[in-house]
């Protein structure tokens, strides 16, 4: 009985932690934001910018894994190859309001750009 409760609680925690919880967003009014690509994550992974604000996302890839090599922003038709240990800038202008997910080819690295 106890083990079942523990197991079901574990499942509930998995659902809450990975799907329901909304992490804090990095709100920026700067025109540039540095995003580190390291250890399987983008950091920050959740960015909020204002509509009509031109912004340059500067991806600094520190992860050797080839999975981190390609960055895609499908809603903006952007695909970029990230060079190891270098900053790859992606300049965005007039980005439509809403959420724009950015991720690697396999969607293991994931982040979101929210335009409000």
């Amino acid at each position: 009985m106890i083990i079942n409760i523990v197991g079901l609680t574990g499942i509930a925690l998995i659902i809450w932690w990975f799907w329901l919880y909304k992490p804090d967003q990095t709100v920026t009014e700067s025109n540039e934001i540095l995003i580190e690509v390291k250890n399987g994550v983008y950091s920050p992974a959740s960015i909020q910018v204002n509509a009509n604000q031109s912004v340059t996302l500067k991806f600094l890839r520190k992860d050797e894994s080839p999975c981190s090599e390609v960055l895609l922003i499908p809603s903006l038709d952007i695909s970029e190859q990230l060079t190891l240990n270098e900053v790859t800038p992606i300049h965005l202008e007039n980005v439509p309001q809403g959420e724009h997910t950015f991720h690697c080819q396999m969607q293991m690295y994931r982040g979101v750009l929210t335009v409000v």
Partner: peptide, 19 residues
């Protein structure tokens, strides 16, 4: 080590991957 660091960082980020 790279699997565990990756898994931990992802976990903190509320995401999960192969690691």
């Amino acid at each position: 080590r790279h699997f565990y660091i990756g898994a931990w960082k992802s976990f903190k980020n509320h995401s999960a991957n192969m690691d």
